[in-house]
Write a protein that binds this DNA or RNA. Structure first.
Lengths: 130, 130
DNA sequence: TCCCTATACTCTCCAAAAGAAAGTAGGCAC
DNA sequence: GTGCCTACTTTCTTTTGGAGAGTATAGGGA
């Protein structure tokens, strides 16, 4: 006999599971540490060059910056403009979509700033409990 | 002679760089794929047991679920309640802090749902350009 | 002439993180 | 005894990430 498959009452509105999967994937893609930090820099400083970003985003490697920017470009979050000069000059800026994502993340930045202390205290308490 | 250290005008309000570093760290910690998905499940379904979560969060391994829950507990986002019975029973639920983070992320879920199509189209266009 | 600089990558190598799968504890039903 | 149940660990393999060197090209200086 197959597993009887418990019926659990779900108080939430029925959502197409395929949409949910896609949303989860997109969240996983976009809620990435480096994507967030790059997004924030471009929000704050507008159009930036590659080296400028690598200086501004603390701790990012060139490899990850390139990779992150490519993915963001593919997802339609940034535009990449190449100026055919020597030495090379490439500029990145947010699209409307990228900007709207930045706004969506605004609440998280505010939360982080507001709750730094609480998290720090929670960690100390946890670590003290062993 | 040391590098002359270009002076760039920064239009943003001066923020203590130490605070910024801490916020960045916290964002990196909290804006993690699995943390987000677990947070969302606990928001939607309230208190959950370990196995329930591992069933609900698509694709998570037991190792990552344990690890994610531990970190969330350390950060004060969830409470872990052990019922000393056999077989073991452990329940997880969000704290106020966890709940507030869930609300902060709400905008991102809404954004993802609203912009799935745009991202999909952007990707197709990008891939078509080669 | 040769060398150096600047920029935006790209490549290679190694360490760290994540995933898959099997193992563990310890009562309980059979 | 055998096997089951849950919430983990442990081990092993694969993937990912970071450090650092290499690349192309034009202009400037010795």
């Amino acid at each position: 006999m197959p597993t009887p498959e418990k019926i659990i009452y779900d108080p939430n509105p029925p959502v197409d599971p395929r949409v949910e999967t896609l949303v989860n994937e997109l969240i996983g893609r976009v809620a990435d540490k480096w994507t967030l930090l790059v997004l924030e820099e471009l929000e704050d400083h507008g159009t930036c060059r590659f080296t400028e970003l690598s200086r501004r985003v603390p701790g990012i490697s060139q490899k990850m910056l390139t990779q992150t920017l490519r993915q963001m470009e593919r997802d339609g979050l940034v535009v990449r403009t190449v100026h055919p000069v020597v030495p090379p000059k490439v500029e990145y800026c947010l699209t409307d979509l990228g900007h709207s994502l930045g706004e969506a993340f605004c609440g998280v930045w505010v939360w982080a700033e507001a709750n730094l202390e609480r998290v720090a205290r929670a960690r100390m308490a946890f670590d003290a409990r062993g």
